[in-house]
Design a protein around this nucleic acid. Structure first.
Length: 565
RNA sequence: GCGCGAGUAGCUCAGCUGGAUAGAGCGUCGGCCUCCGGAGCCGAAGGUCGUGGGUUCGAAUCCCGCCUCGCGCACCA
């Protein structure tokens, strides 16, 4: 049992002795102010009403009935309106480190989900251009959320959905056609909604290198059609270009993701929903469910029956489907594939779609729960360099790509910076700070803490594997800096499960920074090597524990934990 | 206009799902230090938690109104 579990057990006994109803579950929390002790409980405040007594009186009774020795408590104090503060004796407090050493890399992991399957969909960028910072934030968030859920015992599937069937792909193919035509000396402009980026020119060059320049009259005719808002008559050629462009960009995006260290288990192609007949099937089911109607030549879904603010068109007058129909069909596949939980990580600019997808799933009446899928939406990212904002313009093709950033500041820094703010707030990515090798840079600061701890073992020529909790004098870790560091390390499992539950990796990032600060403080104040044997032993246990937990936290965020820098 | 998000120290942000005198880093001011691993350490000042109400033992946190900013409101994706 960990120290707080012992204390909770002792408190429960005392509460029952005082007359609390059976099933009381005392809540322990860390006081903000360390002067208030190691733990505090508001138990007396919550019991005051049912017992019909004053909170402070209840607190006094509880303390009187508390088995201090069993709880490892050295001092209690009744404070404020009726809080009870506990100070554990140094030994009881630090004994929790034994747990860390015993569990190692598994410290902080639980099995609460017991292998329940969950699908985490993220990035899902259209294959129409390289990944930009916003996708990077999604990649970092999605991967970290996946890691958090794995740590909570979920069987996680990381999934990428390729929108390779819509209008945007059509525009991509047209853009490539135009670039190929331009390269052949035909004068034609990129169409409305097309892609201007340099990367299309490069793809055009490669296309010509691999397939040769297409017949000029076909090219010219197609270019004219595109300029007029139509598609080229040479369907076979157009199709070839479309496939070529998509393949090229998918390959690019794969490289981006690889550089970022993100691996997906499933790439789901929107086009397969059509070829497998799932879109048709979904429409049929929706019609059968009775929530559709025809109006003005279009087929509508009455999404207002399910909380949307207006009804949505499913099939346009021209006979094609709106994007949300394949989206619904896609989410049906998630449900059918056994994912009782599905989490979608998306930019906040997509939040308008969430209500419709959920409404569509409800209208199918196939037993999908109301809040399915869950959405984690994140706000915009802006990038600053030299104190100036780097403008992102998709139209002009000026981009801050994920790969630029990684080349510039390194994968670890990109990950940390994209994760250090909660998704709800806008994020400013300061490239200069991310690149700096100084303690102002949070990533550097945290990794440095880990490296320093490793350094102790290296310099002392001590194999960490030989350090165990056996026979350690726990009360040797009584310095204030030590008590606080120990507290942080023991808080880690609660922190991680909270972050997993709320799908908020930034909590881990903040915890790492704070704990790194405590490591640095401790390190500066107290020596390890050269101390008397019993202190040396205890401090080596602390150093090894701290190093382990820092590494565990970093690994959740996909960041390396270097032994030297 | 409607929906979602944000508004906390001079700046950048936390605030553990309702707890005590609201925290950290940077910056500012004052003082030490040069020690396994690099300018680090100690202390101070700095707040009407956007604003007005409400809920209760207790609110930055929950509810309602208002203000400012961002994003979204297609038979685009």
């Amino acid at each position: 049992m960990t120290p707080d579990e012992l204390l909770r057990a002792a408190l429960t006994k005392a509460a029952i002795a005082v007359g609390a109803p059976a099933g009381v579950a005392p809540v322990l929390e860390r006081p903000r102010d360390p002067a208030h002790g190691d733990w505090a409980t508001n138990l007396a405040l919550t019991l005051a009403k049912p017992l019909g007594k004053k909170p402070r009186d209840v607190a006094a009774e509880l303390v009187a009935h508390l088995d201090l020795a069993a709880a490892g408590v050295s001092a209690t104090e009744i404070a404020g309106p009726g809080f009870i503060n506990f100070r554990l004796d140094a030994g009881a407090h630090a004994r929790g480190l034994a747990d860390i050493l015993a569990q190692g890399a598994a410290y902080g992991r639980t099995d609460v989900a017991q292998g329940k399957p969950v699908n985490v969909e993220f990035v899902s960028a259209n294959p129409t251009g390289p990944l930009h910072v916003g996708h990077g934030r999604q990649a970092a968030l999605g991967d970290a959320i996946s890691a958090l859920l794995e740590g909570a015992g979920y069987a996680v599937t990381r999934e990428f959905y390729y929108n390779d069937a819509g209008v945007q792909i059509e525009n991509l193919a047209k853009s490539l056609w135009v670039r190929v035509a331009q390269a052949a000396g035909i004068e034609v402009a990129i169409p409305e909604g097309g892609y201007n980026g340099e990367y299309i020119k490069e793809i055009a060059e490669r296309y010509v290198a691999e397939h040769g320049t297409p017949p000029l009259d076909a090219l010219r005719a197609g270019a004219q059609a595109i300029a007029g808002g139509a598609r080229p008559a040479d369907v076979a050629l157009f199709d070839a270009m479309r496939r070529f462009a998509v393949a090229a960009l998918r390959a690019e995006q794969d490289l981006d993701l690889k550089a970022f260290g993100v691996q997906f288990d499933v790439y789901y192609l929107e086009s397969s929903l059509y070829t497998d007949g799932l879109v048709e099937e979904t429409v049929g089911l929706l019609q059968k469910g009775g929530h559709t109607f025809e109006d003005d030549g279009a087929l509508w879904l009455r999404t207002t029956d399910f909380g949307d603010d207006k009804d949505r068109v499913m099939r346009k007058r021209d006979g094609t489907y709106t994007y949300f129909v394949p989206d619904v069909a896609y989410h049906v596949t998630k449900w059918r594939r056994g994912f009782t939980r599905a989490i979608n990580v998306q930019g906040a600019d997509h939040h308008g779609t969430t209500a419709r997808v959920r409404a569509g799933l409800q209208a199918l009446e196939v037993g999908v729960p109301t809040g399915y899928p869950e959405y984690v939406l994140h706000q915009m990212v802006t990038v600053t360099r030299g104190g100036e904002e780097v403008k992102i313009s998709k139209r002009a093709g000026s981009y801050v790509t994920v790969r630029d950033l990684i080349d510039d500041v390194g994968r670890d820094a990109v990950r940390y910076f994209l994760l250090m703010r909660k998704g709800d707030s806008q994020l400013v990515f300061d490239v200069d700070l991310a690149r700096s090798q100084s303690e102002e840079n949070p990533v550097y600061y945290i990794q440095m803490a880990h490296a320093r701890l490793s350094g102790i073992f290296r310099v002392g020529e001590i194999d960490p594997a030989t350090i165990t909790a056996d026979g350690v004098q726990w009360d040797a870790l009584g310095e204030e800096a030590e008590r606080e560091l120990v507290s942080s390390l023991l808080d880690y499992p609660r922190l991680v499960s909270g972050a997993a539950e709320s799908l908020e990796p930034h909590r881990v990032a903040a915890w790492l920074l704070e704990t790194a600060r405590q490591v640095h403080l401790w390190y500066h104040k107290h020596h390890v090597l050269g101390e008397p044997e019993h202190i040396l032993r205890a401090r080596l246990v602390l150093a090894k524990s701290a190093r382990q937990v820092l590494a565990n936290g970093l690994s959740l965020l996909g960041i390396s934990a270097p032994d030297r820098m």
